[in-house]
């Protein structure tokens, strides 16, 4: 969903007015961004799955920033943000013209132990993470019990190295009499089947 769709679903006039102010005077975003929770409320938005009202309001404020200095302003709002504000920045990234610079934010979010931030960091913007960092983040989801359904493009990006790491974790868990979450076990199964299929086809080719 783009910013206009989100604005329509949210339907709060103050956001429209605040966006106009932010577009004219980017420095005005601070107070609007900080107070968006109590102004917008925190209810899930029916017309925008996965978005709460406060997150949508903050994302729309960010999307109103002029392109000059946008990356720097977004980075500062993230760095100085509460957990809710950081979450809104991460969710807004796909709506903003921020490129590979987002990596620093994603890496910060992945280092936290806040499951919501970890999950949000593995949305579409995670394409900017290198493969090693992405694998570690996915493994951390499994380790901390964050569902893998929030990982954007999981099956396209999951590789043999991730399978080795998942198998290692599953082995440790089994030794402790515990299981990995069902979605992780299923992913490991898919990766193992792919590997076996590849081996079978390369065996056929070589004989």
């Amino acid at each position: 969903m783009d910013a206009y769709g989100l604005l329509d679903v949210l339907g709060q006039d103050w956001v429209t007015e605040a966006r106009a102010e932010v577009a004219r005077r980017p420095g005005a975003i601070g107070r609007h961004f900080a107070s968006a929770g109590r102004r917008a409320g925190r209810a899930p938005l029916d017309g925008a799955p996965g978005w709460r009202a406060d997150e949508a309001a903050r994302a729309l404020l960010l999307a109103a920033l002029p392109p000059e200095d946008l990356t720097e302003r977004v980075a500062v709002l993230y760095a100085e943000g509460t957990a809710d504000e950081k979450l809104a920045v991460l969710k807004a990234l796909p709506l903003l013209p921020v490129g590979a610079e987002a990596v620093l934010l994603l890496r910060d979010a992945i280092r936290t132990n806040d499951a919501r931030l970890l999950r949000a960091a593995l949305g579409p913007s995670a394409r900017h993470l290198d493969q090693a960092a992405w694998r570690q983040a996915v493994l951390k989801c499994v380790f901390t019990g964050v569902p893998l359904d929030g990982v954007h493009g999981l099956d396209e990006r999951a590789d043999a190295e991730l399978a080795v790491m998942l198998a290692g974790l599953a082995g440790e868990r089994a030794a402790a009499g515990r299981a990995v979450p069902a979605d992780a076990a299923a992913l490991l199964d898919r990766l193992t089947q792919q590997k076996e299929a590849r081996c079978a086809s390369s065996t056929r080719t070589s004989t």
Binding site: N113, A115, R116, F143, T144, G145, V146, P147, P181
Partner: peptide
């Protein structure tokens, strides 16, 4: 959302 989260465990 995440009842299995590691600080609970």
């Amino acid at each position: 959302a995440f009842q299995g989260s590691s600080i609970l465990r």
